[in-house]
Amino acid sequence: MQRELIKGNEAVIKGALMAGCSMYFGYPITPASEIAQAAAALFPLLGGTFVQAESEVAAINMVYGASATGARVMTASSGPGLSLKQEGISYIAGAQLPCVIIDVMRAGPGLGNIWPEQGDYNQIVKGGGHGNYKTIVLAPNSAQEMCDLTMLAFDLAEEYRNPVVVLTDAYIGQMMEPVEFPRSRKKVKRQPWAVHGDAESQGNLVSSILMNTTLLEDHNFALQKKYEKVAQENTRYEALHIDDAELILIGYGIVSRILLNVMQMLRDQGKKVGMIRPITLFPFPQKAIADACEVAKKIMVVELSNGQMLDDVKLAVQGKSEIEFYNRMGGAVPTVDELLEVVQKYI
């Protein structure tokens, strides 16, 4: 089937609709507003719901409500909005509800600016709200993956009853690339735990409160077990040329696109450079990186943050290989030449 040339942000919405998503609640923020606009244009045409909420806080709580009915529901925002949504995300994780959240990262802290950064890593990957929870985090690096990973996000959210965040940036969102969409829309199944407002679900309760310490501790241990299961079953990454690589480049999102050029150029020069691109940031591809360290003497992490993913790489590497780090912040994105020069120092 022919592909459509489409922006990543729009591919998210078309992917969501094909995944059976019927409800969108959001609040405008640059650079994620295009997702809301695409949702506003398309959801009502398929009998779905689009509500522009009064706040990010309200939007995520509308998501909570809709999710409690088992509907496939989503929201999208950027860093400052995600900070506000953390309360709701904690409740959604605590009540074990499925939902999909798109974070088109911008530069911070504070109001920062609207250019791309990866400074939301900690608040998204480490569970930015209160309590012992995790969100499943997917990091697309193309318009095709904006569609595919959004669709996957709905499946994972439902399978594990957990919020899933698609963590992306303005470049991936603004970029147009060919995308092949599925030809058939996913049918949404009735969830046995959901509150439908009918006799069959009358006894159901959606809640995150457990006053009894034993029960709440059990709940917390069960959540951790679930996250381990996610890690076993759904750790995803892309590995290129790692079998003989002496230096492995690690980056996600737009950074991985630039690193791909750098790796290709160095490979053309006969340099043994490989690359690991985490596709899931939680679960983090710890084992893949640890295994690659058996061969690679050096690991190079490139991030558009102050080294937020670097911590996870260090945990994976466990001192087995040397780690170099290069970063830009504040909306600056390195060029291919810039990274090439940096990487060459370490070969």
């Binding site: 999710s67 409690a68 509150v195």
Partner: peptide, 19 residues
């Protein structure tokens, strides 16, 4: 059917449920 909501957010949760 019962749903427990965060402090102050019940009308937003209600919006999601009802829609």
């Amino acid at each position: 059917g019962n749903v427990q909501a965060a402090h102050g957010r019940a009308p937003a949760v209600a919006t999601g449920l009802k829609r």
